[in-house]
Protein backbone atom coordinates (compact mmCIF):
# COMPACT_ATOMS: atom_id res chain seq x y z
CA UNK A 1 0.00 0.00 0.00
CA UNK A 2 2.81 2.39 0.91
CA UNK A 3 5.08 1.34 -1.95
CA UNK A 4 4.54 4.74 -3.55
CA UNK A 5 6.28 6.24 -0.51
CA UNK A 6 9.41 4.20 -1.25
CA UNK A 7 12.37 6.68 -1.45
CA UNK A 8 13.83 4.88 -4.51
CA UNK A 9 10.63 5.39 -6.47
CA UNK A 10 10.17 8.97 -5.30
CA UNK A 11 13.81 9.79 -6.06
CA UNK A 12 13.31 9.15 -9.77
CA UNK A 13 10.50 11.74 -9.82
CA UNK A 14 12.28 14.39 -7.78
CA UNK A 15 14.62 15.62 -10.51
CA UNK A 16 11.86 15.74 -13.11
CA UNK A 17 9.69 17.78 -10.75
CA UNK A 18 12.54 20.15 -9.86
CA UNK A 19 13.19 20.76 -13.56
CA UNK A 20 9.49 21.34 -14.23
CA UNK A 21 9.14 23.84 -11.36
CA UNK A 22 12.29 25.67 -12.44
CA UNK A 23 10.95 25.99 -15.98
CA UNK A 24 7.65 27.67 -15.01
CA UNK A 25 8.58 29.41 -11.76
CA UNK A 26 9.97 32.72 -13.04
CA UNK A 27 7.17 33.25 -15.55
CA UNK A 28 4.56 32.74 -12.84
CA UNK A 29 6.51 34.96 -10.43
CA UNK A 30 6.58 37.75 -13.00
CA UNK A 31 2.83 37.47 -13.63
CA UNK A 32 2.07 37.36 -9.89
CA UNK A 33 4.25 40.40 -9.16
CA UNK A 34 2.66 42.35 -12.02
CA UNK A 35 -0.78 41.66 -10.59
CA UNK A 36 0.26 42.35 -7.00
CA UNK A 37 2.21 45.56 -7.59
CA UNK A 38 0.63 47.10 -10.70
CA UNK A 39 -2.73 45.66 -11.77
CA UNK A 40 -4.49 45.29 -8.41
CA UNK A 41 -6.13 48.48 -7.10
CA UNK A 42 -5.23 50.22 -3.83
CA UNK A 43 -7.62 49.64 -0.93
CA UNK A 44 -10.17 52.41 -0.28
CA UNK A 45 -9.07 52.59 3.37
CA UNK A 46 -5.51 51.26 3.52
CA UNK A 47 -4.29 52.62 0.19
CA UNK A 48 -1.26 50.94 -1.40
CA UNK A 49 -0.15 49.36 1.90
CA UNK A 50 -2.71 46.62 1.16
CA UNK A 51 -0.20 45.19 -1.35
CA UNK A 52 1.70 43.72 1.62
CA UNK A 53 -1.28 41.36 1.94
CA UNK A 54 -0.12 39.52 -1.20
CA UNK A 55 2.93 38.20 0.63
CA UNK A 56 1.70 38.30 4.24
CA UNK A 57 -1.42 36.14 3.77
CA UNK A 58 0.15 33.33 1.65
CA UNK A 59 3.10 33.22 4.10
CA UNK A 60 0.71 32.77 7.04
CA UNK A 61 -1.27 30.08 5.23
CA UNK A 62 1.90 28.17 4.38
CA UNK A 63 3.17 28.49 7.96
CA UNK A 64 -0.09 27.05 9.31
CA UNK A 65 -0.49 24.38 6.62
CA UNK A 66 3.09 23.15 7.01
CA UNK A 67 2.70 22.64 10.75
CA UNK A 68 -0.64 20.88 10.24
CA UNK A 69 1.11 18.53 7.78
CA UNK A 70 3.95 17.89 10.24
CA UNK A 71 1.46 17.13 13.04
CA UNK A 72 -0.50 14.69 10.83
CA UNK A 73 2.70 13.02 9.67
CA UNK A 74 3.81 12.74 13.31
CA UNK A 75 0.62 10.83 14.13
CA UNK A 76 1.28 8.52 11.17
CA UNK A 77 4.88 8.02 12.33
CA UNK A 78 3.57 6.84 15.73
CA UNK A 79 1.15 4.43 14.02
CA UNK A 80 3.20 3.07 11.11
CA UNK A 81 6.79 3.78 12.28
CA UNK A 82 7.88 4.58 8.71
CA UNK A 83 11.31 6.17 8.34
CA UNK A 84 10.35 7.86 5.12
CA UNK A 85 7.64 9.90 6.87
CA UNK A 86 10.25 11.27 9.27
CA UNK A 87 12.28 12.49 6.28
CA UNK A 88 9.19 14.20 4.88
CA UNK A 89 8.39 15.94 8.20
CA UNK A 90 12.03 17.03 8.59
CA UNK A 91 12.03 18.47 5.07
CA UNK A 92 8.83 20.48 5.61
CA UNK A 93 9.80 22.04 8.96
CA UNK A 94 12.38 24.65 7.77
CA UNK A 95 9.99 25.85 5.05
CA UNK A 96 7.21 26.30 7.62
CA UNK A 97 9.54 28.16 9.98
CA UNK A 98 10.73 30.56 7.28
CA UNK A 99 7.17 31.38 6.17
CA UNK A 100 5.97 31.79 9.77
CA UNK A 101 8.80 34.28 10.38
CA UNK A 102 7.99 36.06 7.09
CA UNK A 103 4.34 36.25 8.13
CA UNK A 104 5.29 37.88 11.45
CA UNK A 105 7.80 40.30 9.85
CA UNK A 106 5.57 41.37 6.94
CA UNK A 107 2.64 41.63 9.36
CA UNK A 108 4.71 43.94 11.52
CA UNK A 109 5.62 46.09 8.49
CA UNK A 110 1.94 46.21 7.48
CA UNK A 111 0.96 47.04 11.07
CA UNK A 112 2.97 50.28 11.17
CA UNK A 113 0.95 52.22 8.53
CA UNK A 114 -2.33 50.45 9.41
CA UNK A 115 -2.34 50.28 13.21
CA UNK A 116 0.37 52.86 13.90
CA UNK A 117 2.62 50.31 15.62
CA UNK A 118 5.16 47.66 14.61
CA UNK A 119 4.11 45.30 17.39
CA UNK A 120 1.13 44.67 19.65
CA UNK A 121 0.58 41.96 22.26
CA UNK A 122 -2.29 40.74 20.17
CA UNK A 123 -3.70 37.16 20.35
CA UNK A 124 -3.12 36.46 16.62
CA UNK A 125 0.43 37.80 16.59
CA UNK A 126 1.47 36.10 19.85
CA UNK A 127 -0.02 32.75 18.75
CA UNK A 128 1.96 33.01 15.47
CA UNK A 129 5.14 33.59 17.50
CA UNK A 130 4.26 30.49 19.57
CA UNK A 131 3.95 28.56 16.27
CA UNK A 132 7.44 29.75 15.33
CA UNK A 133 8.75 28.50 18.70
CA UNK A 134 7.18 25.06 18.07
CA UNK A 135 8.89 24.93 14.67
CA UNK A 136 12.23 25.77 16.27
CA UNK A 137 11.74 23.10 18.97
CA UNK A 138 10.83 20.53 16.30
CA UNK A 139 13.92 21.32 14.19
CA UNK A 140 16.31 21.48 17.15
CA UNK A 141 15.06 18.21 18.64
CA UNK A 142 15.70 16.45 15.33
CA UNK A 143 19.13 18.01 15.06
CA UNK A 144 20.58 17.64 18.53
CA UNK A 145 18.89 14.73 20.31
CA UNK A 146 20.64 11.35 20.07
CA UNK A 147 19.86 8.57 19.19
CA UNK A 148 17.72 9.29 16.14
CA UNK A 149 14.80 7.15 17.37
CA UNK A 150 14.54 9.26 20.54
CA UNK A 151 14.77 12.48 18.50
CA UNK A 152 11.92 11.29 16.28
CA UNK A 153 9.73 10.46 19.29
CA UNK A 154 10.34 13.81 20.98
CA UNK A 155 9.90 15.84 17.80
CA UNK A 156 6.64 14.01 17.03
CA UNK A 157 5.33 14.79 20.53
CA UNK A 158 6.29 18.45 20.01
CA UNK A 159 4.44 18.52 16.67
CA UNK A 160 1.28 16.86 18.03
CA UNK A 161 1.29 19.08 21.13
CA UNK A 162 1.96 22.16 18.99
CA UNK A 163 -1.00 21.36 16.78
CA UNK A 164 -3.26 22.63 19.62
CA UNK A 165 -2.00 26.08 18.67
CA UNK A 166 -3.36 25.90 15.09
CA UNK A 167 -7.08 26.36 15.92
CA UNK A 168 -6.04 28.99 18.48
CA UNK A 169 -4.36 30.97 15.68
CA UNK A 170 -7.34 30.49 13.36
CA UNK A 171 -10.01 31.54 15.86
CA UNK A 172 -7.94 34.05 17.88
CA UNK A 173 -9.54 36.94 15.96
CA UNK A 174 -13.02 35.69 16.95
CA UNK A 175 -12.33 34.59 20.54
CA UNK A 176 -10.52 37.73 21.65
CA UNK A 177 -10.69 41.44 20.88
CA UNK A 178 -7.70 41.93 18.64
CA UNK A 179 -6.21 44.55 16.35
CA UNK A 180 -5.94 41.92 13.64
CA UNK A 181 -8.84 41.88 11.21
CA UNK A 182 -11.04 38.76 10.87
CA UNK A 183 -10.58 36.45 7.86
CA UNK A 184 -11.67 37.99 4.53
CA UNK A 185 -11.55 34.68 2.69
CA UNK A 186 -13.82 31.93 3.95
CA UNK A 187 -14.13 28.41 2.58
CA UNK A 188 -17.50 27.82 4.25
CA UNK A 189 -19.01 31.28 3.72
CA UNK A 190 -19.02 34.38 1.55
CA UNK A 191 -15.61 35.99 1.16
CA UNK A 192 -15.47 39.75 1.62
CA UNK A 193 -12.48 40.26 -0.67
CA UNK A 194 -13.02 41.69 -4.17
CA UNK A 195 -12.01 39.55 -7.15
CA UNK A 196 -9.49 42.22 -8.28
CA UNK A 197 -7.58 41.53 -5.05
CA UNK A 198 -8.36 37.83 -4.83
CA UNK A 199 -6.68 37.04 -8.14
CA UNK A 200 -3.23 38.47 -7.28
CA UNK A 201 -3.51 36.72 -3.92
CA UNK A 202 -4.17 33.37 -5.61
CA UNK A 203 -1.26 33.95 -8.03
CA UNK A 204 1.13 34.78 -5.22
CA UNK A 205 -0.05 31.75 -3.26
CA UNK A 206 0.63 29.57 -6.30
CA UNK A 207 4.13 31.01 -6.68
CA UNK A 208 4.86 30.49 -2.98
CA UNK A 209 3.54 26.93 -3.13
CA UNK A 210 5.78 26.15 -6.12
CA UNK A 211 8.73 27.62 -4.23
CA UNK A 212 7.87 25.47 -1.20
CA UNK A 213 7.61 22.38 -3.39
CA UNK A 214 11.03 23.15 -4.88
CA UNK A 215 12.69 23.59 -1.48
CA UNK A 216 10.88 20.52 -0.10
CA UNK A 217 12.08 18.33 -3.00
CA UNK A 218 15.65 19.54 -2.63
CA UNK A 219 15.62 18.98 1.14
CA UNK A 220 13.97 15.59 0.78
CA UNK A 221 16.55 14.57 -1.82
CA UNK A 222 19.30 15.67 0.58
CA UNK A 223 17.79 13.57 3.38
CA UNK A 224 17.58 10.48 1.15
CA UNK A 225 21.22 10.90 0.06
CA UNK A 226 22.27 11.33 3.72
CA UNK A 227 20.52 8.07 4.69
CA UNK A 228 21.89 6.23 1.63
CA UNK A 229 25.41 7.39 2.49
CA UNK A 230 25.03 6.00 6.00
CA UNK A 231 23.88 2.65 4.62
CA UNK A 232 26.34 2.52 1.72
CA UNK A 233 28.44 -0.30 3.12
CA UNK A 234 25.36 -2.36 3.91
CA UNK A 235 24.27 -2.34 0.25
Amino acid sequence: MFDVLNPSKIFTWIEKLIKFINSIFFILLLVALTFALIVSPPDYLQGDSVRIMYIHVPSSWIGLASFTCIALISVLIFIFKMKNLILIAKSIAPIGLVFTCLSIITGSIWGKPTWGTWWAWDARIVSMVVLGIFYILFILSNKFIEPESKATKISCIIAIFGFINIPIIKYSVEWWNTLHQPASIKIDGTSSIHSSMLMPLVFMLLVFLLYCALIFLMKYKTEIIRIKKKNLKRI
Binding site: L37, P42, G47, D48, S49, R51, I52, I55, H56, S59, P94, I95, V98, C101, L102, I105, T106, I109, W110, K112, P113, Y211, L214, I215
Partner: peptide, 24 residues
Protein backbone atom coordinates in the same frame (compact mmCIF):
# COMPACT_ATOMS: atom_id res chain seq x y z
CA UNK B 1 6.42 55.94 -3.76
CA UNK B 2 2.97 54.27 -3.69
CA UNK B 3 1.37 57.32 -2.10
CA UNK B 4 3.75 57.25 0.82
CA UNK B 5 3.43 53.52 1.50
CA UNK B 6 6.30 52.55 -0.84
CA UNK B 7 8.83 52.14 1.96
CA UNK B 8 6.59 49.59 3.72
CA UNK B 9 5.54 47.71 0.58
CA UNK B 10 9.03 47.50 -0.93
CA UNK B 11 10.59 46.57 2.42
CA UNK B 12 8.09 43.71 2.89
CA UNK B 13 8.64 42.39 -0.66
CA UNK B 14 12.43 42.77 -0.43
CA UNK B 15 12.68 40.95 2.91
CA UNK B 16 10.49 38.12 1.58
CA UNK B 17 12.43 37.60 -1.64
CA UNK B 18 15.86 37.94 -0.05
CA UNK B 19 14.89 35.40 2.64
CA UNK B 20 13.53 33.01 0.00
CA UNK B 21 16.70 33.37 -2.06
CA UNK B 22 18.91 32.67 0.99
CA UNK B 23 16.88 29.54 1.85
CA UNK B 24 17.10 28.35 -1.78
Amino acid sequence: LMNGYGIFVWAAFAITFITCFILY
